[in-house]
Nucleic acid binder design. Structure first.
Length: 627
DNA sequence: GTAGGGTTAG
């Protein structure tokens, strides 16, 4: 049958014979399956014609992929016309491969060829080329395809409308997306999910949730899209709440849901749930999923379980740069800068190429260990050896590294000479260094800049006023406080939290609202006696107020992290680590106190503050008092 | 055929 098709086909026409001119050598039969160029293809065709065999013996997908992007396109068309398969479907599968791979531009080019050579396009063609447009964020070309969709009469095809919706929403043309979504004759879960995902990605998480609540038939991907959206918009609590609700409907998390929920756990420091999801993930056979492992690493790191993160990392059969970067960053914020650098070297030895995030972790590690020269070397190396130009974040790290180490002049020079405009974080790091060095003049320069760059951030005023207070310049300190008040800036209240048996207890400074407040204060007084006998002296310089010394002590003794710790000591069984989270940086006096307490109670105390971890053990802290 | 996920400075 195929043979007769072949005989009747135009392939025996003089035209085709001309086009394979110069390829008359009889090829080996293996060429039928192994040709990789138009030239070899022509040899194969010549062989078939010569031996009177049907052209359908050729692997058509390969014919298509070889001719798709070349001027030999019509040659392939001639071959296809001899077989009993629709030409467009062969090109479509080729188009799909390109659109799903990394050759999106080639996919667009193939689409162009198909139009040039009058292939009659179908809905599949349009959907694949739209996918390529989305991948390239090529709105303009996407609009052209939209024109084709209308011209070819596919305008009521739901799948294509969804693809167009995806195009507009992903490329930021939300007005077009909304218009299309509103006027679609019918919508399915995909339509809603596209809108939810993209709205949340653009930060409109309320708009996304509004749609989520309105949509008629939610599927797992709808829930996942919404959970992911909450996480990306910094609403981890809402993400978890929704996840619990999803479980109640009987839906089971898939790999993408797991990633989102783990990320939420990382944000909140929700170790219990994180562990539960880890178990669920293993039971569900997700153990090999790299995204999940990377998020697990991050979750354990941000929950203060460095060892658990290491186990996940070590057990990974395959790692990406994200795995390495996450681990390096994790070691850095846990104060194991030396290990971070070792891991970096190991990574390089294995031939893995670092990216800009890897360097952020490395610079972070150097900064937290005071490795000034190493940090400088890495900073130079990243652009010189790896062709990665430093971003504002890398400059931020360097300014932090230098100013923390007391090299304020160097830091200042870096800021004023950097090719990017310094932002508030850069000046903020500098200001932090000024506080450590007690350099009022430099601090004043920083605060001048910050008054313009980020005038509503309370933290800068607090530090400045603290610097004045430490210099006993009470009037200036008060002036800064007043400036803050005049500008309507409120101090973020500090809080610390601790989770016991699934319940999170939050404390603020001076908190006497807690049901166990009396016992907490009593236990603290007992502890204080022991601490003093070990040499603890309260450091009242952290109190900004101009009040009597013994009044200051009372303030210090009621700091939120101390209350959380004492509560933990009372309620967590001996031997277990105590994990505390704080929304601000841990105070110096608490830091000193926790070291002594870790020795007295012989327990590990892990504190996650807004920047890093402090792991107190046997009288020492993992940050080595450099933070 | 159309919707999705991981590391990011103070």
């Amino acid at each position: 049958m195929l043979h007769s098709v072949c005989l009747a086909s135009p392939l025996h026409s003089p035209k085709l014979k001309d086009s394979i001119n110069g390829t008359s050598e009889v090829p080996n039969t293996t060429l039928l399956h192994h040709f990789t160029s138009p030239f070899e293809l022509k040899q194969a065709v010549a062989f078939l014609i010569k031996t009177n065999k049907p052209l359908s013996l050729l692997p058509l997908s390969r014919v298509a992929s070889i001719c798709a992007l070349t001027p030999d396109f019509p040659f392939a068309q001639q071959i296809f016309s001899s077989v009993d398969q629709q030409e467009v479907s062969i090109w479509n599968s080729c188009l799909r491969n390109l659109a799903e791979g990394s050759s999106l531009i080639d996919a667009i080019f193939l689409f162009h060829q198909m139009r040039c050579y009058n292939v009659s396009l179908d809905c599949f063609t349009c959907s694949f080329v739209l996918k390529a447009c989305v991948g390239l964020r090529d709105l303009l070309r996407g609009r052209i395809v939209h024109g084709y969709v209308e011209k070819l009469g596919f305008q009521s095809n739901l799948v294509l409308l969804n693809a167009l919706l995806h195009l507009y929403a992903t490329c930021g043309a939300m007005a077009d997306a909304n218009l299309l979504f509103d006027k679609m004759p019918q919508r399915d879960a995909v339509s809603w999910n596209i809108m939810i995902t993209q709205l949340a990605k653009k930060g409109d998480v309320d708009g996304a949730f509004d749609l989520f609540e309105k949509m008629p038939d939610r599927n797992l991907r709808s829930w996942t899209a919404m959970i992911t959206g909450f996480v990306h918009c910094g609403k981890a609590k809402e993400a978890i709440r929704l996840f619990v609700e999803m479980e109640e409907t009987g839906l089971r998390a898939n790999e993408v849901t797991v990633v989102a929920v783990l990320a939420a756990c990382a944000d909140l420091g929700a170790l219990d749930l994180g562990r539960r999801i880890h178990e669920y993930s293993n039971k569900s056979g997700f153990r090999r999923n790299i995204h999940i492992c990377n998020t697990l690493i991050d979750m354990y790191i941000k929950c203060g379980c460095l060892e658990a993160a290491k186990i996940v990392f070590n057990e990974m059969k395959e790692r990406t740069i994200v795995s390495w970067s996450a681990m390096i960053q994790g070691l850095a914020i846990h104060g194991h800068g030396d290990e971070a650098l070792e891991l970096f070297n190991e990574m390089i030895k294995m031939g893995m190429k670092p990216n800009e995030v890897t360097f952020l972790g490395i610079l972070h590690a150097c900064s937290h260990m005071g490795l000034i020269n190493k940090g400088r070397e890495f900073f130079t190396s990243m652009s010189r050896d790896y062709n990665i130009s430093p971003q504002i974040e890398h400059y931020g790290c360097m300014v932090d590294l230098l100013s923390r180490a007391g090299l304020l002049q160097d830091a200042y020079e870096l800021i004023t000479s950097m090719p990017i405009n310094p932002n508030a974080v850069v000046w903020g790091s500098f200001l932090g260094g000024c506080r450590i060095q007690k350099d009022v003049k430099m601090a004043e320069e920083a605060i001048r800049q910050l008054g313009v760059l980020d005038p509503l951030n309370d933290g800068y005023y607090i530090i400045m006023s603290n610097i004045y207070a430490e210099a006993k310049r009470w009037e200036d300190a008060a002036r800064v406080r007043k400036l803050m008040k005049d500008r309507g800036v409120k101090k973020t209240p500090g809080w610390s939290s601790i989770t016991i048996a699934g319940t999170t207890h939050e404390f603020v400074a001076g908190d006497d609202n807690h049901p166990q407040a009396e016992q907490i204060f009593k236990r603290w007084d007992e502890l204080l006696e022991q601490m003093k006998s070990k040499g603890y002296v309260p450091n009242t310089s952290v109190v900004l107020l101009d009040i009597e010394e013994n009044e200051k002590e009372k303030y210090v003794y009621r700091h939120s992290e101390k209350l959380a710790l004492v509560f933990g000591l009372m309620n967590i069984k001996p031997g277990e680590a105590i994990r505390i989270m704080k929304n601000l940086r841990v105070c110096e006096d608490c830091h000193a106190a926790f070291k002594v307490i870790s020795e007295i109670v012989k327990r590990e105390i892990v504190v996650r503050d807004r920047n890093r971890f402090h792991c107190f053990k046997d009288g020492f802290c993992s940050c080595k008092d450099y933070w």
